[in-house]
């Protein structure tokens, strides 16, 4: 196991992302290749989980797009992530806030953590 994590770390370029956790609202600036051209798309939503360890760590971002819930999983070390902005820190009581999927409207709000 130890050899595995060290080797995996050697083979993958480590990225420094800002600290965020479930309940936070973030904007992911994601690079998208269209033919030859590359552009940056912004994806804003609530982080509903952080999963995995080391180089295979990922996070899931949920947003409501045209009244349809969309969830997207990003690997932490993806070279396509340009940068991440943490817009809001949320107050939640658990590490994985899947209950938010069942909530609508005013109930789906997350209380903001004030510094």
């Amino acid at each position: 196991m130890d050899i595995l994590s060290t080797i995996a770390a050697q083979l993958t370029e480590k990225r420094e992302l800002p600290a965020f956790k479930a309940g936070d609202t973030i904007t992911v600036h994601f690079k998208i290749k269209e033919g030859e051209k590359e552009r940056i798309q912004q994806y804003q939503g609530v982080v509903i989980q952080r999963k995995g360890t080391g180089v295979t760590r990922t996070f899931t971002v949920r947003k409501i797009s045209n009244s349809i819930g969309v969830e997207r999983i990003f690997p932490d070390n993806s070279p396509f992530i340009d940068k991440i902005d943490v817009n809001k820190k949320g107050v939640v009581r658990r590490a994985r806030i899947f209950y938010i999927r069942e909530l609508k409207g005013k109930k789906a709000r997350i209380k903001e953590k004030l510094a």
Binding site: M1, L11, S78
Partner: peptide
């Protein structure tokens, strides 16, 4: 067999791989 992990190709693709001693 040591175990599995993943790495990124030059094109940025996430490739599942096995580490073997």
């Amino acid at each position: 067999k040591i175990g599995m992990t993943s790495l990124y190709s030059a094109a940025g693709k996430n490739i599942p791989c096995t580490v073997i001693e």
